[in-house]
Amino acid sequence: MEIEKKVGQQSIRFVKPIVITSSASVVGSTEGAGPLADTFDWIVEDLLFGEQSWEKAECKMLRESAKLALRKVNLQEKDIDYFLAGDLLNQIISANYAARGIAIPFFGLFGACSTFVEAMLVASILIDGGFARRVLLASSSHHNTAERQYRFPTEQGVQRPPSAQWTVTGSGALLLEESGNGPRVTMGTVGKVIDMGMTDANDMGSAMAPAAADTLVNHFQDTGTNPGSYDLILTGDLGAVGKAALIKLLQQRGYRVGENYHDCGMLIYDLEKQDVHSGGSGCGCAAVVFSGHILRQLWEKKYRKILFLATGALMSPTSAQQGETIPGIAHAVVVEFN
C-alpha cells in the first residue's frame, strides 16, 4: 500500500531515507571570531575574498562551499542530479553566478533567510519523489552586500538600534543522498507567508516571529508532536528580539519552549563582546551554523532529533520605501540521527 506522505495541513513525511552525507561552511572574519569558529571549514579573513567586489566575494563563497561539500566525499559534479541555491541579493545573483561555474542542473531559490531550509525541503522532496539520488544545496549572505542593498553604505555613519541584526558573511552547503550514513531528514513543514504589519527594517526578528510561530504550531498539530518531542528546536535568525517574541507567541498558543530552544543568529556571535546587537541574520546564518556546529552535535550524539526552522523576511528596499509591511515565512525540517 502506498504510504501517505502528506501529513495534516502543511507537513510531509519522507518515506525514503534522506541522508545528509556531506556539508561545508565558509565564513568571514566576524563569524570566525565568534564562539563557533572551530566548527567552520574555512574562515576567510578578507571580506573581498580576493575578488573585485563584495558581490563577487559572496558568489565565490557560495561556489567554494558547494564544491567543498562535494570534495569531502570524493564526488564529481556529474554525480549530482540537482544543485539548489539561493541568497539575499536582487535576482539571487550569488547563487546564479555561482551555478555558472558548477555543471549541475540548477534550481535557484528565494526565501530570504529561510532559503537554506527551503532548499533542504525541496531537495528532500526531489529525492523522496524519485527524481534525484543526490542533491547539492547551498545558501549564502554577505554583510556588506546585504547592508548596501537593504540599508546604508557601510561607511555612512549611521547608528544601528539595539533590535538591528548583523548579516552573516558566509555560505553553507549540504549534500543530501538517498542512502549512506549520517543524519536524516525525516519530516518537513512548509510555511505560509504571514504578515503582522511590522514595518521596521531594523527589526527583522519581530517581523518573522509570527511566521515561525505559525509554522511551529502547524507542525506540532500535523505531526502530533510538541516542543518536548525534540532535543533541540532551532530557528534560523530571529535574533534576541525575535526569539523573545516567538516564545511569547507560542505561549499564547499553549506551547512552552524552554531550554531546548536556540537561535542560530544568537549562537554564531558572542552577543556580549561582538557588536552585533540582536544577533546574526541572513541566508548564510542558518546555513553555516547548521552545516558546522549543529551537524557536529548530531554526529557526537548530543542531539538525536531536532526541529530546524529557518525564517525569512520577504521584503525588498522598494517595498519598504513604498511603506509596505514586511511579510515573513518559515520552513521547518526534522533531522534525526539514531
Partner: peptide, 16 residues
C-alpha cells in the same frame, strides 16, 4: 491580531 502583536513586540523590543 496585528494590534495585539504590535503590543507584544513593544514589550520585548529593547529601546534605544
Amino acid at each position: 491580531l496585528q494590534q495585539e502583536y504590535k503590543q507584544l513586540v513593544k514589550n520585548v523590543k529593547p529601546r534605544p
